[in-house]
């Protein structure tokens, strides 16, 4: 689910910040963690931004269900 990814991304970044601030991450891991966070930020940015609005009509479905409901 994409929505879960957004929440997880924020959570993960917060987790990394906390670890850095508590000095739980050594210098070798630091760069890997920052890279991971950068990838998450990029993933979110790409999913949210720079896209045209997309429109899908579910009218067919609705009409079918509507007639089912009446029938």
């Amino acid at each position: 689910m994409p929505e879960i990814k957004y929440a997880k991304a924020i959570e993960r970044i917060e987790d990394i910040i906390r670890k850095i601030e508590n000095e739980e991450i050594d210098i070798d891991e630091l760069s890997a963690h920052v890279k991971e966070a950068a990838a998450l930020v990029k993933l979110c940015r790409d999913k949210i931004g720079k896209a045209e609005l997309e429109l899908k009509d579910v009218v067919q479905k609705f009409e079918e269900q509507g007639s089912d409901g009446k029938g």
Binding site: I10, I13, L30, H33, V34, A37, V41, C44, R45
Partner: peptide, 24 residues
Amino acid sequence: RVREFVQQLEAQWQALKESASGSL
């Protein structure tokens, strides 16, 4: 709502960069 998330994300990213560079 989306903007709020984006801003939160960017703020966290900024905080992370600062704390990483602080640590370095």
